[in-house]
């Protein structure tokens, strides 16, 4: 149903662009990237949400994507694990290489792709099931596990997400009874339970208070040694705190990519500087 258009790599043909777009300012060269997009474009029907974005995301580091709302950062994130496939009228051109393999290639099954790539949503979305069942969900999708194995994995996933101590006595209670911050960490634990290689986070703290946000950020800090994290955020302080690298997007284009500190301290593009100094966005 969501067949990828055959015309790959012809993204520039469809729209005549009067504006002259400068090449993005990329100051660091990532060798052997975990994720690499080449001329990636995404359309929602006639509207182009991502325009020719080429970006290399380093392995086992945290990369932040920042930019004003509507700049396409969430769309880019969801292009990595093909969640955009679920949106009707959405099509993607160009390449999205995940560990060197095009996620949109003919032999790639989005189910397997997503199994390797965890996604944390803007609003915590625990299933209306018990805490235990939430964590066990992914495992039971992909494995036949007996109850002992299941319990072990659930416990270690919750521990990894710094949630075990708070919920160990209420594993059988509904996850909807947890606080917002706990719910979001539950969602992270749920993703971690199937040992993903990547963790995509779509403004994971935008619905949370500062304390809960700090806990999530601590968690990200612990996790970055093990998984490749890509976080979309509109909060520049957050990007500065958690990310090793930062990409700035504007109107569907990649404007600048650099080490986080360099990007914030000496942006090369005027647009970037205007944004991080709060002149718009």
């Amino acid at each position: 149903m969501f067949r990828r258009p055959a015309a790959r790599g012809e993204s520039t043909v469809t729209e005549a662009e009067p504006e002259r777009i400068p090449e993005p300012a990329v100051s660091v060269v990532i060798e052997d990237p975990a994720i690499e997009s080449k001329n990636l474009s995404v359309w929602y029907r006639r509207k182009q949400a991502i325009k020719d974005v080429s970006l290399r995301i380093p392995r086992r580091k945290t990369t932040a994507i920042i930019g004003p709302s509507g700049c396409g950062k969430s769309t880019y994130l969801r292009a990595i694990n093909r969640m955009n496939d679920t949106i009707l009228g959405c099509r993607t051109t160009g390449e999205m290489l995940v560990e060197k393999e095009d996620a949109y290639g003919p032999n790639v099954d989005p189910v397997l792709l997503r199994r390797k790539i965890g996604l944390i949503f803007q609003k915590p979305n625990p299933f209306p099931k018990s805490v235990f069942r939430n964590i066990a969900f992914g495992i039971q999708l992909h494995y036949r596990a007996n109850s002992g194995e299941l319990e072990g994995i659930v416990k270690s996933a919750l521990e990894q997400a710094n949630l075990w101590d708070e919920v160990k006595d209420r594993l059988d209670e509904s996850a909807l009874g947890l606080s917002g911050g706990q719910q979001q960490r539950l969602c992270i634990a749920r993703a971690l339970a199937i040992e993903p290689e990547f963790l995509l986070m779509d403004e994971p703290c935008s619905a949370l208070d500062p304390v809960a946000t700090a806990k999530i950020e601590d968690l990200m800090f612990e996790l970055r040694k093990e998984v490749t994290i890509v976080i979309v955020t509109h909060n520049m302080q957050q990007a500065a705190r958690v990310a090793d690298y930062t990409a700035f997007m504007y109107l569907g284009r990649l404007v600048e990519f650099n080490r986080t500190r360099d990007l914030f301290e000496k942006p090369r593009e005027e647009l970037t500087e205007n944004y991080i100094t709060g002149r718009f966005g």
């Binding site: 679920t86 965890g118 969602c187």
Partner: peptide, 11 residues
Amino acid sequence: ELRDGALALGA
């Protein structure tokens, strides 16, 4: 979001 959450886990 619930359906998407399941799909994102590889369902």
